[in-house]
Amino acid sequence: MRPNAIESLRAAQAALGEVIAPGLTSAFAVDSAQTVQMLLESLASEWDTAAESLSRDSETLRSLLSAAGEALTNAPAGNESLRPLVSEIEHRLRDDGTTSLMISELASRNGSLRATLESVLVTFEDQTGRPGSEKIDEVRIRIYKHLKEVAARGWSFWDVSSFRGRMAAINSADGVDDSRESVG
């Protein structure tokens, strides 16, 4: 069935840019049309890869949470306050069985995993640098590497202005660049 969704979005963008916008007289209407144009660009940029990205991202999150659980379990003895988080991770990894390919279902599953990752990362920020936290530090770095990859995906209006240089550095490094100074 053609045109597909992206081709149809491109048609809407073309009409907006070439037919509708030139006929607008008010600056506010022109500004709104530009915003809609960018919104369509944002949708088009992720349409084809959304399901794949969510699915892969969730698998990576599962792997990171598993490693986080292990690091927390092996944290220095006496740190009983970390046990509930280990239980939360175990529960999340057990209760994560959707096989639906609907974007809403994939996003919901991903959101649940990210919620647990949020708890993990906040805890790791409190634990990092402490004696015996080497395993936690190691997983923390892996988590941030993944979050940076996710944060660099898709299209943003800033990519053609403020973030142009930054995104070029990322793309030239064939992934997330880690050239900036790390202070831990």
């Binding site: 919104l39 944002s42 941030y144 996710v150 944060a151 943003s156 800033w158 973030f163 900036r180 100074e181």
Partner: peptide, 24 residues
């Protein structure tokens, strides 16, 4: 407002900047 919908979809680049500034 399409602006509100659009801006909500642009938080990722700010996260990138936040992580750079954290040095992680």
């Amino acid at each position: 407002s399409p602006m509100m919908a659009f801006l909500g979809r642009n938080i990722a680049r700010l996260e990138l900047e936040v992580m750079d500034l954290m040095g992680v």
